[in-house]
Structure formats: structure tokens, C-alpha cells
Design a protein around this nucleic acid. Sequence first.
RNA 1: GGGCGUGUAGCGAAGUGGCCAAACGCAUCAGACUGUAAAUCUGACGACUUAUGUCUUCGAAGGUUCGAAUCCUUCCGCGCCCA
Length: 404
Amino acid sequence: MLIDEKIARLRRRSERIISEDELRRRLEVAEKSGKPLRIKLGMDPTAPDVTLGHCVPLKIVRQFQEWGHKAVIIVGDYTARVGDPSGRNTLRPQLSEAQIDENAKTYVAQIGKVLLTDPEHLEVRYNGEWLAKMSMMEVIRLLGRKTVEQLLAREDFAKRFESKTPIFLHELFYPLLQGWDSVAIDADLEIGGSDQLFNNLVGREFQAELGRPGQMVIVTPLLVGTDGVVKMSKSKGNYIAVTDPPGGPSGMFGKVMRLPDALLESYYTLLTDLDLSDVRTEIAANPRDAKVKLAKLIITWLHTSADAEAAEREFMTATHGGVPENIPEMKITASPQRLAPLLVSAGFCASNGEAIRKIKEGAVRIDGEKVPPESFGQDRTFAAPVVLQLGNKRFVRLVPSESV
RNA sequence: GGGCGUGUAGCGAAGUGGCCAAACGCAUCAGACUGUAAAUCUGACGACUUAUGUCUUCGAAGGUUCGAAUCCUUCCGCGCCCA
């Protein structure tokens, strides 16, 4: 593939490339010398899930892998203890070491859904490897590389400073640590979300100060979450995780179908490689079908095409008032009991009171039959398995046990 | 260290002795409508086998009072200003 073609392809998911000329040059050199570029991507293991939002930069990394370059994934186990202030207007909570390590472990498996994982193409590093070893003197020298003014220039900090929201010193330190990662692993190019631009450029400056070629930076647009309003993130609960099941109440299919229409084009752009003019035509013609197609594409990508088909069938069944094929089972006793506690133990309702309210609202069905609202206080006996349903998303098969 | 503020349910924000399980907005869940989208309307939104019933909540602990989110004391967190 020609370099121009490669760059054109990258642009689809790039908000900024710093810089394009440099990238062109260094790709050329790499091709001639056969020495692959080292592509850095930092992952913050604050949350256990890798989301579709992470997939946008990951897809760029994958692209480079396919062109023969090496992905260097930095799991920020050490920096997570500091808390990335990016995009935050308040202090990020600090997690316990155990939680962070737990999360970090699952990351490698999750990113494997998007990246090539052979050692030729992937290197995974934990930044505690070098950061934990720094002496006080080294830390102070690192601090001496940036001025308060420079750090406050960053938008997040500037806003917080302006609005007198507290900024703790360790938060100011975060970009420096992340920049130092680039030095430690000798990155040629760093990929990140556009909210990482500042941090990424710090890495570039550090390298240059040490007389090396500064890393290039590509930042991607941020994927808007399922709420259609803010950046997809675990903490906002507006995310689709790469490990989400294909179907079911909180599965990928349903989540994609529930996306606001306005998000379709950006999802297609950032998460698929389909021709965009075709995509636009399809969306304009029938947003619903475009959504179904997107859901299947994503499931095929992160699971299998069979899963995509199954999820679609299940979804269509549920949509038309039917009961999906594969639903969880819950063992219950055969003796008479009230319905509300069952809704709670199925995880549909947080409390008995809420369950009773739902019954009163007519939101509960058994085998598709609406449970009469006034019958919430009656005992029921289940002789054979039945399907208990709340709304049109949540189903469970109640299986009465033989022994009482 | 001093002065002035402030801390209410997931978030924002009312309430400043009884009518407060606590207005209102957002978010959420459900019903109607629909394309399981948007918009709109309706209901719910601390817990309790739902009761014009009981219990636990308004940063924490004590106290005053027949009665406290509201008054007092101490403590903790946060903000601004002064040092």
C-alpha cells in the first residue's frame, strides 16, 4: 500500500496527526530499513472494562500492526494510582492496588479482541516497571521539566483553576508520568483519544529534550456514549464493553439498537471500515436497518457472525412480544410464594417495594401474560417452568425444584 | 493559626423547629405511542409480603425539645479571604 493511501486511511479516525509530513517520512524510513515503528497506546486500568470507546484508538493501532509495526501497550498500573485528570472537573477517585491489578490483568485479554497478539506485533508493559523505581531525585528532575504555567495551559486544568475547583499537585504530575512512559519505551508514535493530546505531546517534548526524535501523535475523536451526550466511559455508565454478551438485556445488540440515531454515522465511521457515502445513504434511507447492520457488524467483530445472527433473531423475537430462546434460568421452590421477591432475586428490581410497584404498573408478565396489577399480594404456586418478564427487556425462566 | 461560608437522596438544588421520606430539575425504571431511536404524555423513584402502617435517612457523634434536616456543642470534609 502506498504511504499516501495509508495516511488517507488513518484520517478516517484521526482528529489530529502531529504531524502528517513527519509520519510520511518516518513510514518511508521504516519501510526502507525494515525497522518497525513502536506504536504506543496507554490504557488506564481504573475500570475493568475495555469499551468501544477504547476501540477507536485500538483500531488505529491494529492498522499499524497490519502494516508491520509494533504495538506497545502501556498498562498504567502505576499512573492509575495517581488518577488521570483528563476530562474531569473533579478529582478522580484513587483505587486500591488490588483493584488496579485485577483490572490490569483482564486488559490484555480484552484488547486481544482488537489487536494482533503475537509477540512480533504486540508488547505489553506496565508502567510501574520504571516509574516505581524512580528515586526522589529523579522525580524532582522530572518535575523540573515543566512549568506550572505549561501545565495550567491544559484545558482541563485551566477550567478547574478558573472555577476554583481544587487541583491537587499529584494531578499536575500525571501528564509528566505519562510523558515519561514514552521515553521509557522509546515510542515513535502515540495513539490516544483527543482528550489525551496534551499528555501525548508532553511525551514528544521529553523525547526531544533528550535528543531523540519526538514521538508523533495521532488523536482520535471521542466516541460518544450510548446516552448520546457525553464521551463513552465506564463511570458514566453509557458504554458498550468489548466483553458484553452479544444478546440479552444488556447485550451489544440491544445497546446498539437503543443508540440515538444521531450517533449512527460516527459509530460507523469510527468502529467500522465501510464506505462512508454508502453508509450515509443507508442511514438516511432507514435508520433502523442501519442500526441492525451496525449491531451485527460489531458483534461479528468482537464475537462471531453466528452470535450476531443469534442476537438478531433473539432481538426480533423479543420485539414482537415473544420470548427469546436463550434466557437465564432461576431455580425456585415449588411451594406457594409471592412474585415480588422473585423479581428481586432475578436481579430485575432493587427492592421488594420496587417490584411491587412494577407489578402495579403492569410491567410484569408470566409466559407473556400480563400479571394483574392488583394481584401483587397473592401467593403463587409454580408447578412447571414459566418465563418471568419485566418490561420487554428482561426475562428469566423460573424452574421449580422437585424437592420442596 | 484567624475570619466568613458550606456539606441534603445517583447528580444538581429547595427546605432553617411540627403540614419532611424531604419541593423542583436532570438521570434512571416502567406504562402508552413507536423503529426496544427521537419527541410527547403518564406513573414510580430510602427500606419493610403496600400499610391512609412501621422503620432508617439530610457530613459524624453527642445534646436541647413533647417534637430536629432545621437550635446548641464537638469533630470531620470542602471553598473563599487573611497570616
